[in-house]
Design a protein around this nucleic acid. Structure first.
Length: 434
RNA sequence: GUGGUUGUAGCUCAAUCGGUUAGAGCGCCGGAUUGUGGUUCCGGAGGUUGCGGGUUCGAUCCCCGUCAGCCACCCCA
């Protein structure tokens, strides 16, 4: 074989595909429970759709090319710009709040490593048109229920929750200027991956243009705040502190009323990139090993205005299939795949073949997953195939059975066999199904 | 994109110091078994040792390049 798949692109053999389907089905079930409707958009988009939001630097990480019509195009790296365009185009006709989700393949031209490929499937859930904290609580609850649906508990995964409004108030209170906020966010984002002196140097700025030493130290203090009460305490005396805290508190109260607060940790180090988040920011993490974040999201009240020209607040998150898939595999939470065949029909002689075909097709019409041997074989051999397929039931048809207008139904797990009239065969197989 | 590390059968792994025809288990195919499966027994297929070059009488083993996987960085989903 001289051809292999491109680096970072996966092939899904049946067992892999079963695992993927299991994941997608769980995603769809939970999203449906929250009243979310599924949508999709084009996998290939104009390059400008992404450079407008993220600047030309993004091109280095995109799968982009010039098409035969001389258009600059890119395989979608994320769903949000497409979503923004779709919502904007119908914004006046859509009843708010809009609850939409999609399961779509995304592409990124980056060197792959574990949990990070050049393509992946991503669940996007967005709630658009609701500015209040109940909207935030709604999507966070959805995220938690996704984990629950997949068999994960609050000991397995944690939601780490922060709020840009709270963080900004604390940082301003610590003496950080408006212009220095992005730098502070960047440092806080790297807090767990960098040494303290390097972080301080980063905050001070290479040319001394950053913040003073005491301010930098206070920034790092703010970044280490955990739990709501600690955040509340730090906010006392900070101008606008109480107002900034209100949405976060209300979001947590709503989650508590749902009984889901045990999954959530307030953690101000969650910043998520630097761009468009305006309020709540959260990530779902593996509580055990330091895997990458399983999912992440937040409130982005200005983005739809900037991208789609329609001014609607929004909150949402995305979850990729790779990291969660690795985690489920690691925990043994992938269910055993459903056997491809339920009923295997075996003929004894060549003369039985038409009867095998007839019964097989009746079974298939009745919805039974059915197989039979495609070449004439000894009965023992056919049963071997039935066994390898993990079929629950085999049906044997031979000249003797046909003379009595019967078939033999053999339960392959219980090793029991009985004669059933040919007329009742399909009904008997359906009855034995559960 | 940068650095490190690993590549042997479909899968998991052997192969002494550089030495003859690269082995095993699982899986796959066939037979024991022409109206009854799983267990068992017997047999078989399957390899350019990732690829290309170099050193050597001789390379899975040493060297160089390259491709791919993994890890870290970068960046983030």
């Amino acid at each position: 074989m001289s051809h292999q798949s491109l680096p970072g692109f996966r092939e899904f053999f049946p067992a892999d595909f079963a695992a993927r389907s299991h994941l997608f089905e769980a995603w769809r079930r939970v999203a449906a429970r929250y009243g979310f409707e599924e949508y999709d958009g084009p996998p290939l988009e104009p390059l400008e759709l992404y450079t407008e939001k993220s600047g030309p630097e993004i091109v280095g990480q995109l799968y982009n090319f010039t098409d035969k019509g001389d258009r600059q195009v890119a395989l979608r790296p994320e769903m949000t710009p497409t979503l923004a365009r779709m919502v904007a185009s119908r914004a006046n006709g859509l009843r708010k709040p809009i609850r939409w989700f999609s399961i779509a393949q995304m592409f990124r031209y980056e060197r792959q490593q574990r949990g990070r490929l050049r393509e992946h499937y991503q669940l996007n859930c967005d709630l658009i048109g609701e500015p209040g904290p109940l909207g935030d609580a709604e999507v966070i609850a959805l995220l938690i229920d996704l984990a629950r649906e997949l068999g994960l508990g609050s000991d397995d995964v944690r939601v780490r929750l922060s709020d840009r409004r709270v963080l900004a108030a604390l940082l301003r209170g610590a003496g950080v200027t408006e212009a220095q906020l992005p730098l502070a966010y960047a440092a806080i984002d790297k807090r767990e991956r960098m040494e303290r002196p390097a972080l301080e140097a980063m905050l001070r700025g290479v040319d001394g243009s950053g913040m003073s030493e005491p301010v930098a130290a206070r920034v790092l203090e703010v970044a280490s705040l955990h739990r709501l009460d600690a955040v509340e305490k730090a906010l006392t005396g900070v101008p606008g502190g109480e107002a900034a805290l209100l949405p976060l508190r209300q979001t947590l109260q709503a989650l508590a009323a749902m009984g889901l607060d045990g999954w959530v940790d307030v953690d101000l180090t969650i910043v998520r990139g630097l761009a468009y988040y305006t309020g709540t920011v959260f990530e779902l993490f593996d509580a055990g090993k330091s895997l990458r974040a399983i999912a992440g999201g937040g409130r982005y009240d200005d983005l739809l205005g900037r991208l789609g020209g329609v001014d609607l607040p929004a909150v949402g998150f995305a979850m990729g299939d790779v990291v969660i898939g690795d985690l489920l595999k690691e925990r043994g939470l992938h269910p055993a795949p459903t056997p491809a065949v339920e009923v295997f029909i075996a003929g004894v002689t060549d003369d039985d073949l038409p009867h095998v075909l007839a019964l097989a097709h009746e079974c298939r019409d009745a919805g039974l997953r059915t197989e039979y041997a495609l070449t004439a074989q000894a009965v023992g051999k056919q049963l071997k195939l039935a066994d390898a397929r993990q079929a629950r039931v085999a049906v044997l048809i031979g000249p003797d059975d046909r003379a009595r207008n019967e078939v033999q139904i053999k339960d392959l797990t219980a090793k029991a066999q009985r004669s059933v009239s040919r007329t009742d065969a399909v009904a008997a197989l359906l009855a034995a199904r559960s």
